[in-house]
Write a protein that binds this DNA or RNA. Structure first.
Lengths: 80, 80
DNA sequence: GAGATTCATTGTGTTAACGCAACAATTTAT
DNA sequence: ATAAATTGTTGCGTTAACACAATGAATCTC
């Protein structure tokens, strides 16, 4: 094991207009923990990942993935 | 934190006709680890949860959830 | 009924995901 | 420009998710 897990926490959080402190207290962890996750210092537990995904109303795979996420400019620039 | 996380690993594994040993080596963990997870002795890491969901071709939430899963008889007995 | 899988259990050790505290650096607001 | 909020970083402690080993019970196969 030990595969790299990419995440889009920062993007979803910024889009929701939340500070780390706010997201932290919503999902019930320390503010620094959110920072550590966003920087990729370590990976969240499944429990925390489920809580974050639940809060943003998306599937876990929308926020955490073995594959690197496309940049926003790539994803929003959709041609048929 | 520390919410209960329910899982349907055993059902997906049995449905795929896999032994714990086989699932374990597919996702790259010890066979006992699968047993511990199925019995709910502890929760998987996000990494392991992603690997298991990926192998069965479903979203993480189909296998791991804060909500208890309905029994198969309930789920298969669908009336409009 | 002997052997091979599978599953259950216990125990010991390692590592990483946290909590908490403190403080500096940067950004935002007034 | 000063204050306030946000973010970055370090360090130390705890706990739980693993790995690995060993053993026994249950089931399946020949």
């Amino acid at each position: 094991m030990s595969r790299v897990v990419h995440n889009r926490i920062a993007i979803f959080r910024a889009d929701a207009g939340l500070s780390r402190r706010e997201l932290a207290e919503v999902v019930g962890v320390n503010p620094q923990t959110i920072g550590f996750l966003e920087r990729g210092d370590y990976k969240p537990s499944l429990e925390l990942a489920l809580a974050i995904a639940e809060h943003f109303g998306v599937a876990v795979e929308q926020i955490f993935s073995f594959e690197a996420f496309p940049s926003l400019s790539q994803q929003l620039n959709m041609r048929s």
